[in-house]
Amino acid sequence: MTVRAAWLLPEGQTREDTRLTLAALLTPSGQSAEETPLRSRAGVLPGGLLLNGGAPMQATVGTGRAIVQGKDTAQGAYLVAVTAPETLTIEDGNAQYDRIDLIELAVVDDAYDRTGTTEAVVRLVKGQPSATPVVPPSPAGSTLPLYTIKVPKGTSAGTGGIAWATAVTPQHWPVVALGGIMPTSGYKGAYTGQYRDAAGILQRWDGTTWVSYPKAIGGIAPSGTAAGSHTGQFRDTGSGLQRWDGAAWQYTEGTSKVLFGASQWTTAQQQTLAANTWTAISLPTVEFDDASAFNGTTTYTVPRTGWWRLNGHATYANDAQTGMRGARITVNGTNQPRTTWLSPAGNGAVCVGGSALVRLAAGDALQLQGYHTHTASVRTLGGSGYSCTLAAEWIRS
């Protein structure tokens, strides 16, 4: 028969009938299209079959439940329960080489394996000592690997035994009933709409990959989501929101500001500027720098692409009353027509500068520069309410 049902026939229901039909309650394998319809995902129900190294050369596998998929698809899946701890003794290490031993859960079914034995067992498979040891192959039966144990050469109870904290590597993976939320493992999803718990983040299998929840319209994606699922989706960056524009994450107006301001405002900080040359002005006092993007002296590196409001002012001491005084904000060392200001000198302090809206790209370097045309050097002025200042505020993408 190719169509089977459990508890339908008045007599003659086989063990295969029962295994194959009960597998409708289990998560499909999902590792290939050929496997999915009839093969179940093998694994251990969360929290079961834990290994404990209680003695130098003995390991105990605790109680638990598991699913062992038959080698032959027609076998169906075996539901296995270990109802009492199983203790296994590790043979002493080889005198010359390391080896790797395997602990596995096996179902040996004579109807398929032709071994003369029918049983479910937790068994230890001894590996071969080698300069490059590998995991040994499993004997007959349908198996689920549980743990590998590295046995260094010369290991014995007399030398302290197995270093359980470092020698054991888990090989099994979790399994839940169909529709259950599964702990993270390296397995692909078995069907579109399956969920798993990825270290506290719920993820959904979309048929191709695991996608962090929520993905639906209106859901705010967690920080680290590489790409949005739809135009207009928002992502939490930890310090504000970004909007997916169909190609990239953009910061949104009013949801996350970036502010910067630095000054040269005391007499001790004043700077001497040579004539007829634009000179970067040192700004040692930082009022605010949300993105930690200022180098501490003259240069602010733009952390975010978009429209910025820039303010720059240079104040000059009354060293002379002739020539022009200037200030400008450069982008990557280049003069910007909207951010260049000149004023004639006068009898007293001269403050030159202004503000402008400028579109900048992440990585652009901003500087406040000063300039004058007097015949000798002129100092900047700080103190008594005067300063040289550069400020920047991100407005929108």
Rank of each mutant, 00 (worst) to 15 (best):
A165C: 00
V122M: 07
G179P: 10
A66P: 12
T155Q: 03
E104N: 05
P137M: 00
T117Q: 12
A95L: 13
P133F: 09
P139H: 03
L50C: 05
T60C: 04
G154F: 00
I162Y: 01
L79Y: 13
A131F: 03
A81Y: 07
E86S: 12
G179N: 11
A42W: 04
P56S: 09
R41F: 02
D109I: 03
L146I: 11
L50V: 15
K153A: 15
E86V: 15
V82F: 07
W173H: 13
P56L: 06
D92R: 08
P56C: 03
V175L: 08
V107A: 06
L178A: 11
T83M: 09
V175Y: 04
A84L: 01
A42S: 15
A42I: 02
P137H: 00
N94S: 15
T143P: 04
G54H: 13
A165M: 10
G53R: 03
V80F: 04
A77V: 13
T87R: 10
R41H: 08
L146T: 11
D72L: 14
P137E: 09
A84N: 10
V61C: 04
V151E: 11
P85M: 01
L146Y: 05
T155E: 13
T89R: 05
N52C: 01
N52S: 14
L51G: 00
P137R: 02
L146P: 14
I67W: 03
A106G: 13
L178I: 10
L105A: 08
G179S: 11
R114M: 07
G161S: 08
P137L: 02
A165R: 03
V68L: 04
T155I: 12
G70P: 01
A74E: 13
K126E: 12
E104H: 06
I90T: 03
K126T: 15
D92E: 12
R123A: 05
L50D: 05
G43P: 14
G116Q: 06
A131N: 09
G160V: 09
H172T: 15
G48N: 09
M57E: 07
T73Y: 08
D101A: 07
A77E: 02
A84R: 14
Y147M: 08
V121G: 00
A165E: 13
P46F: 00
T118N: 11
G70W: 05
V107H: 14
G160F: 08
A59Y: 00
I149N: 10
P136A: 06
D72G: 02
A95T: 15
T63L: 08
P174S: 09
T143I: 10
Q171V: 10
P56T: 02
P170R: 04
A81L: 01
W164A: 14
G70Q: 08
L51K: 05
A157Q: 14
P85C: 05
G70T: 09
Q58K: 02
L88H: 08
Q75V: 05
G116T: 06
L124T: 06
S142Q: 05
A111W: 08
A111Y: 09
A120Q: 10
A42E: 13
D113R: 06
D98P: 15
R41I: 00
A111N: 12
T89I: 13
G62Y: 03
G64K: 07
G141R: 07
E91W: 01
G43R: 06
Q128T: 15
P85N: 05
A55W: 04
N52Y: 03
G70M: 04
L178F: 09
A167P: 07
T83P: 01
D72N: 14
M57A: 06
R123D: 10
G43F: 06
A55L: 13
T117W: 07
A95R: 12
